[in-house]
């Protein structure tokens, strides 16, 4: 259950792993549980497909959205808002932090880290085994270590988000599962969720996958994408 996770969920992962789609879905789901939620879009890497594009939908669900201190979808400035520290300090908030990709994206955490209590933090690493750099257990471990080194945090769980977007089938999730099971064996870090977009799954979700099933809606893509 989402409510079993720590109060602060930091979503990280390799570039293009699907962090933002997962983070937005996670936030929308959690908002249905009546929690007071804030999401911070700290993506300083991408210029398209950022969670701030969904500000309206998120705010309609009662979520506080923190993005750049400089407003504008067309801006390419690595500026984050000082408001990002508030939900970390304010214990009444459930806080979801959507980071930019790779170790570069986690650099922003430097601002947050001194005030984080590790006991309050889940550091989730989203993995899509169809991304070339995370297509093997060794690749995933290498990326995990880079993310941990640059963030100073330890990954507490993996999100198996293995997909080929509109060509996703059951085998995708099984392939990701096999790779992440090996990673868990070597690192001890469990798979927390298996995420997939319900409307794109043409086949039944296989049983016995590591991690809790996490069906998603497609928020970040238009129908023609």
């Amino acid at each position: 259950m989402l409510t079993d996770d720590k109060r602060i969920r930091i979503i990280t992962g390799h570039y293009g792993s699907g962090k933002t789609e997962f983070a937005v879905n996670y936030t929308m789901k959690l908002s249905q549980k009546g929690h007071k939620i804030a999401i911070a879009d700290l993506d300083i890497v991408n210029v398209y497909f950022r969670s701030r594009e969904k500000k309206k939908e998120l705010e309609a669900a009662g979520v506080m959205v923190i993005a750049s201190s400089i407003e504008g979808a067309g801006l390419d400035v690595p500026a984050v808002s000082a408001a990002m520290t508030m939900p970390a300090r304010e214990h009444s908030f459930d806080y979801i932090v959507d980071l930019g990709g790779n170790d570069v994206g986690t650099m922003v955490l430097g601002r947050l880290k001194p005030i984080l209590d590790p006991a309050e933090v889940d550091f989730f690493m989203v993995v899509n085994a169809y991304r070339p750099d995370t297509s093997t257990p060794e690749g995933v471990i290498e990326q995990k270590e880079k993310l941990e080194y640059s963030s100073g945090l330890k990954v507490t769980g993996f999100i198996n988000n293995t997909n080929l977007i509109r060509e996703t089938n059951a085998q995708c999730l099984l392939n990701g599962d096999a790779i992440l099971r090996e990673v868990t064996k070597q690192t001890g870090v469990p798979v927390r969720y298996v995420s997939y977009v319900e409307e794109l799954m043409t086949e039944e979700v296989p049983r016995g996958l590591a991690g809790e099933l996490f069906p998603m809606k497609l928020y970040m893509r238009q129908t023609w994408m």
């Binding site: 293009g16 169809y130 991304r131 070339p132 997909n163």
Partner: peptide, 8 residues
């Protein structure tokens, strides 16, 4: 060669 997911 198998399919991979890549940014354009």
């Amino acid at each position: 060669m198998a399919k991979v997911l890549m940014k354009g």
